[in-house]
Design a protein around this nucleic acid. Structure first.
Ligand code: FES
Ligand code: FES
Lengths: 120, 120
DNA sequence: TATATAAAGGACAAATTCATCCTATTTAAC
DNA sequence: GTTAAATAGGATGAATTTGTCCTTTATATA
């Protein structure tokens, strides 16, 4: 259980803004929160086990990454591809794969070992 | 030689905004322009032969794609990597490769054959 | 029960990106 | 030369993203 100030400090992000993001995640059920003294944000063990970056990105930014055309066409489609569609689709697939395979509980391991950082 | 209105129409983008982008490209020398009646924008044959998407993206948006950390850290580095750095670096490399290998004169071929589109 | 603590949420403010409008300058054609 | 057509560029405006502030609600603890 961590409060907003500690989280904001840990990631080097403004407190009020961090709070808004955490609220969004909480509303979507990706994290849990408790009000009041000794309250804060935490992740249910069961949730954490299945939580990947794809779910988080989707919750905050929507499915733009997976749906949008690289050149900004209204729709990205095989049928009416933009000039870079066939090149970009492999990259897009790579991003989605990466986001899906990035489990939060794995990512935390390196952070704990100080092999990766959350701010600089 | 095409004027802004025709270009804007062809890509489904506002005329005034398209003009600003074209001006940026012209200032950087990626395209050429001629004022006055029968004027407009065009690409020098010699320029076109070497023009790829990487150059264009760089001219308009800077080198953010190639430099930025996926998680928004101030700096993306091997030495102080964010938790997704090692996964992301392959994707980033793929994007850069793609942008470098995408020659504008090749991309136009499919557009001319109507195998790809510039608006929808 | 009173108090202190912390998230929830609404309203607002700043910064950035996206887009428009207008005037000046340049050029072709008559 | 005059005129019409076109880019250059500055000033401005709209929309979105980013960030702040304040009040309300909930909870632990004394
Ligand atoms: S249509 Fe542009 S990326 Fe698919
Ligand atoms: S440090 Fe985050 S992507 Fe390299």
């Amino acid at each position: 259980m961590s409060n907003v100030r500690d989280i904001a400090e840990a990631i080097g992000s403004p407190v009020a803004f961090t709070a808004k993001v955490l609220q969004q995640l909480a509303r979507k059920g990706l994290i849990s929160s408790m009000k009041g003294a000794k309250g804060g944000f935490y992740i249910e063990a069961k949730t954490l086990r299945h939580l990947n970056l794809c779910t988080i990105v989707n919750a905050i930014d929507g499915n733009g990454i997976t749906e949008n055309c690289m050149l900004g066409l209204r729709e990205c489609s095989e049928k009416n591809p933009c000039p870079v569609h066939h090149q970009y689709k492999h990259i897009k697939a790579g991003i989605i794969k990466m986001l899906n395979e990035s489990m939060v509980n794995n990512l935390t391991i390196d952070v704990e070992k100080k092999l990766s950082v959350l701010k600089n």
